[in-house]
């Protein structure tokens, strides 16, 4: 390798290293803002802004889904194993909403510690299997004791 080429390679390397460093710093600074949702334990720990709209993500706690009244309202709890947040919602639900499933609720905390949601999205993991395999593994009734973001690495 000639001297000019070595100098150019060094220059490109420096550029790439400097840029990745700047990016890493920026992303660390924005870490909280980059979160699409907060987990129930973060809410319990008081790490979530109050009086503003935010998103809660976790698993629908097993046995928590109730439909009081005419059926459009639904009450359930979002759990991440360490903490649980009760959620009230009125509206349509995505196809994948069920107990043990990961969901994200949009809304605000009310004064009594319940989360009033106006939109529910379903989150799914990267596990794909046939209905036969699922029956054999007895899956679908997943343990509600898993942070929503960790489901992928199950």
């Amino acid at each position: 390798m000639t001297r000019t080429r070595r100098r150019r390679l060094l220059l490109v390397t420096c550029l790439l290293v400097g840029l990745s460093g700047a990016c890493a710093l920026m992303l660390t600074a924005f870490k909280q803002d980059m979160l699409y949702f907060h987990e129930p334990s973060a809410i319990a720990a008081g790490n979530v802004p109050i009086n503003t709209r935010f998103r809660v993500g976790g698993l629908v706690a097993t046995g928590s889904v109730e439909r009081p009244g005419n059926g459009l309202s639904v009450h359930f709890a979002i759990s991440d194993c360490h903490a649980t947040v009760p959620v009230r919602y009125r509206g349509t639900l995505p196809d994948l909403f069920r107990e043990g499933q990961g969901v994200i609720a949009y809304g605000k905390l009310d004064g009594r510690g319940a989360f009033v949601a106006d939109r529910i999205l379903a989150k799914h993991d990267s596990t794909y299997m046939s209905p036969d395999t699922a029956r054999a593994l007895n899956a679908g009734t997943s343990d509600a004791c898993m942070p929503a973001n960790m489901q992928a690495s199950r």
Binding site: L27, K31, M34, L35, Y36, F37, H38, E39, G57, I104, L121, K123, H124, D125, S126, T127, Y128, M129, S130, T133, A148, N149, Q151, A152, S153, R154
Partner: peptide, 25 residues
């Protein structure tokens, strides 16, 4: 999908760790 909480699920194909898929899928 690892660094932040995202609506998108984790990687389907990964260099490390077995993928969570039936072989015929």
């Amino acid at each position: 999908v690892v660094w932040w909480t995202t609506l998108h699920q984790g990687a389907t194909l990964g260099l490390t760790g077995g993928s969570n898929m039936d072989a015929d899928m």
